[in-house]
Design a protein around this nucleic acid. Structure first.
Length: 574
RNA sequence: CGGGCCGUAGCGCAGUCUGGUAGCGCGCUUGACUGGGGGUCAAGAGGUCGCGGGUUCAAGUCCCGCCGGCCCGACCA
């Protein structure tokens, strides 16, 4: 491709409304433009890179025996009703009606449709099957953000496995796990595979593939020592044991109410004279779950993980209670709430509170708290659950080394689904005994545009993107410093021809621009190798070869230049 | 969906408080010089000031409504 005739709309300034590195650079380097919030047009540069992402995924899918499909992205209401998700996914699904008034959905994922097709499988002999597609997914995100990282319309590679039993599912699942590791490695970044919540998908196990990045929005707890890693929605940790010395005067056998005027937060109570440090307080949260009010108790310095609560409490709808509801149920306002003496409410307590004594909590009377609370003695806990979100420094549940919690981008997610969708769609086969059994299903996704952005997040510097050869829109840029000079022009054209003939993807910068402009642009768009052809080098019978990733430069003799460049590029393809 | 900030030329911004000819830098066009890190000079093109309504002799500026975007939070197969 000739730069002079290519559409590569680079910007000299950063776009004002882009904050995430990948967003800023992909726009500035001319890979994409925004159409509206959460919807981006890819330019030829962007689309070339996306196709490389797609090709790598396809290659690895084919390697595990997957067969490519192409399904509709518009679905009838009925099929989503069969699985129950027409109602359960709520506002995140785009819905529309056709001219007859029939309800349709824009597919946000394709479990239903693939399971519907799987109903044509009749015999265990046909299993296992691995099916996949690349398809646009639509999700009405409440808040699209960070360029391609969180959008409303994107391409996903989604695959689905169909097995006769759980052992088969395990095999299919592990094949994907390995394929995904290879895929992300070829993308040029390191991922950590973490235990995750399955959310609305259902199923019993899921693993997310996370890239550590400040641009991310998922928090992962990771142990450097033993490799334990889990989304904070699932992660557990070990806390140092706390010894609660009960005071040994007589009053220790009961709680004591004390005045706490204007004290409404854990923090304020910790600072108040006669108060208690946060870890000695009981935090009382009020939730409404399927219309029933219940209390959630945590240690004062701990945060509730709502996802953990959702995962452990079977419910249709869950929300924090309104202040008015809290007053009606407990007789006090937030800031003075406690669970002592509320035996008729359902009380769930976090495991970290088990056995604690001499604690402080609200008295359910505005401006008063209770001290010397013994949880076992004074509170009727109906269920002990792991509900707290882990934080940095707490002990790894496997090896007790300190955990670190950091932000990550979710680039892939794989689920063991079981029979939820196959049962709903009537996808069953006859086993060896002639008995009909539902197929066991797995589902596996990779967001293509998000992966592309993740590559940028992981591979850039202050001058622009540093694409790995595998994802780069072009592998080599031939920068002709002085295109009006006949010798420069011809030397550039010859090299361009040779490289192209060898199957190298080359961009020749034949624009009548200052050298500085060309160098800056080449670095901004991040082509892995740049060959500089100018009068100076020509006089010495050499070109300069610069590697974008590390800035390393070397002079190459003109007659050997093409071969050396080809070798360098092929060496980095994988 | 709650909170904050913002919509003025392709991009980045000033002008809005205090109403009075719509500006600056970059980019773009033409020409000249220049040519190994965003060069110089000259001449140009480019705007329904997000949209609608109102106040006023006069609105980018003031008032009301709406739309759109970014960030934080909630939510997120």
């Amino acid at each position: 491709m000739r730069w002079s005739s290519a559409f590569i709309p680079t910007l000299r300034d950063d776009p004002a409304d882009a904050e995430a590195v990948s967003h800023r650079l992909l726009v500035r380097a001319g890979f994409m433009r925004q159409l509206m919030a959460g919807h981006y047009s890819l330019t030829p540069l962007g689309f070339r890179s996306l196709r490389k992402v797609e090709a790598i995924v396809r290659d690895e899918m084919e390697k595990i025996g997957a067969q490519e499909f192409r399904l509709p992205c518009m679905h009838p209401r009925e099929i989503w009703e069969k699985s129950g998700r027409w109602d359960s996914v709520g506002e995140e699904m785009f819905r529309l009606q056709d001219r007859k008034g029939a309800d349709l959905a824009l597919g946000m994922t394709h479990e239903e449709i693939f399971a519907h097709l799987a109903a044509e499988l009749r015999s265990y002999k046909a299993l296992p099957q691995i099916w996949y597609q690349f398809q646009t997914k639509f999700r009405d995100e409440a808040r699209p953000k960070s360029g391609l990282l969180r959008v409303r319309e994107f391409t996903m590679k989604d695959s689905y496995t169909f097995d006769i039993d759980d052992a088969g599912l395990d095999t299919s699942f592990n094949r994907h796990l390995e394929a995904y590791r290879r895929i992300f490695k070829r993308f040029g970044f390191d991922v950590v595979a973490v235990e995750a919540s399955s959310g609305v998908m259902g199923g019993n196990q899921s693993i997310e593939f996370m890239l550590k990045s400040d641009a991310g929005e998922d928090w992962v707890a990771h142990c450097e020592k033993c490799g334990y890693a889990a989304n904070v929605e699932k992660a557990q940790s070990i806390l140092p044991a706390i010894q609660d010395e009960a005071e040994d005067d007589e009053s220790a056998s009961s709680t004591e109410k004390f005045a706490t005027p204007n004290i409404k937060t854990i923090d304020a109570l910790a600072k108040m004279e006669g108060g208690a440090e946060a870890s000695r307080q009981i935090k009382t949260l009020v939730y409404v779950i399927d219309g029933k009010t219940l209390l959630i108790l945590l240690r004062g310095d701990h945060q509730l993980s709502e996802q953990k609560l959702i995962d452990q409490v079977e419910s249709f709808e869950m929300r924090p209670a309104e202040v008015s509801e809290i007053k009606a149920a407990l007789g006090a306002s937030p800031g003075s709430l406690g669970a002592v003496g509320l035996g008729d409410l359902f009380i769930i307590a976090d495991e970290a509170l088990r056995g604690r004594r001499n604690m402080v909590t609200g008295a359910n009377e505005n401006g008063f708290h209770l001290r010397r609370v013994d949880i076992e003695r004074d509170i009727t806990v109906k269920a002990w659950l792991d509900l707290r979100e882990v934080s940095t420094g707490e002990g790894c549940p496997m090896c007790e080394a300190p955990l670190s919690v950091h932000k990550t981008i979710e680039v892939g997610h794989i689920f063991k689904l079981g029979t939820k969708y196959t049962a709903a769609m009537g996808a069953s086969v006859q086993n060896e005994n002639g008995k009909s059994v539902p197929i066991t299903m797995g589902s596996y996704g990779i967001g293509l545009e998000r992966s592309l952005a993740a590559v940028v997040e992981a591979n850039h510097d202050e001058n622009g993107i540093c694409w790995p050869v595998n994802i780069a829109p072009y592998e080599v840029v031939v920068t002709v410093v002085k295109p009006k000079d006949v010798d420069c022009h011809e030397a550039g054209e010859r090299l361009y021809e040779k490289l192209s003939e060898a199957g190298i993807e080359v961009l020749i910068d034949d624009r009548d621009e200052r050298p500085g402009v060309k160098f800056k642009d080449a670095e901004l768009i991040g082509i892995p190798y740049r060959v500089t052809i100018g009068p100076k080098g020509l006089a010495d019978n050499r070109f300069e070869l610069v590697r974008r990733a590390d800035g390393s430069k070397r002079d190459v003799p003109i007659e050997r230049a093409a071969d050396m460049i080809i070798e360098a590029v092929l060496d980095e393809r994988s």
